[in-house]
Design a binder for these strands. Structure first.
Lengths: 147, 147
DNA sequence: TGCAGATAGTAAGCCCCCTTATTATATGCC
DNA sequence: GGCATATAATAAGGGGGCTTACTATCTGCA
């Protein structure tokens, strides 16, 4: 029972990720690229470390994503006048119009996902997810300290 | 609210995957390699297409994983006498002993994850996950037909 | 029988993710 | 002021995921 629940959680999120990737593909974006653009709109004018932290990926991983987005004109790196090591990321005119569509895709996706689940169930589900997030964070913390 | 729940689901599963990857790493295995070994024990004597289907990855992806597992002596490819195109995958003496430990890691992982969630909550959670799986499968089905 | 279409496995090439290591710059403390 | 430490970004290199395309083989049907 526990095993099944664990596998089901992992499977669901893989499907969720795939569906998102498929739906943003028609915009010429990969999933991670779209996630960065969304993050860039929600929290503008930050450096690369900030967004790597937000997306929970390593800075080097973000660097490569930004490389491709910059090549394609979706994103611009500008020097931070206050810190010569840092680069501030900016949306471009090209990408600014797309982000609205991305938000629509995200909302539709989550709506599709939760269809047929009523408010009470959704609340219980969200609560369980919260607890799981806490448990997983604690487990990783323990790992880091002991291992 | 919906958005938060969607993001939380995606985040949780990323954490779950990471924790699994970290815990099998001390055995000298990557996450996908460990998942294949577990699948290989549960359903022995099948060909590569079968396991690709089980792990929900493309055959070419499985090919590369098997390449590395075979190089490291964790897995053996044998010709299928009934179909000259196919290769049957086998555990080796080296890997057979490890799979028990892998099962223990999976059980502990899911236990850690669900800690503090009582039986009724777990059942409701599992039920919601079922519904979500159905919804996501339906959405991907629609996608495939229309797009 | 014989050919068309399906299937098993793999190659090439792209993107994402990581660990480890390097360079340039900031910061903190003596 | 000067040095140790921390931080921002990137490079190198490996594993894993994909799409597209190819070969070998099997299967089904005329």
């Amino acid at each position: 029972m526990i095993i099944e629940t664990g596998y089901r959680l992992a499977d669901n999120s893989r499907q969720l990720r795939r569906l998102f990737d498929e739906r943003v593909r028609c915009l010429g974006l990969t999933g991670p690229q779209a996630r960065l653009l969304l993050s860039l709109e929600r929290n503008p004018n930050e450096n690369q470390v900030f967004y790597a932290d937000r997306l929970e990926i390593e800075p080097i991983t973000l660097t490569r994503i930004v490389d491709r987005l910059e090549d394609a004109g979706w994103v611009e790196r500008r020097s931070d006048p206050a810190d010569r090591r840092a680069r501030i990321l900016h949306l471009t005119d090209k990408s600014r119009g797309i982000v609205t569509r991305l938000r629509g895709i995200v909302e539709a996706l989550f709506e599709d996902m939760l269809q047929g689940i009523d408010a009470a169930e959704r609340a219980a589900f969200a609560h369980a997810l919260d607890r799981i997030a806490t448990n997983l964070a604690a487990a990783r913390q323990t790992e880091t300290i002991n291992g």
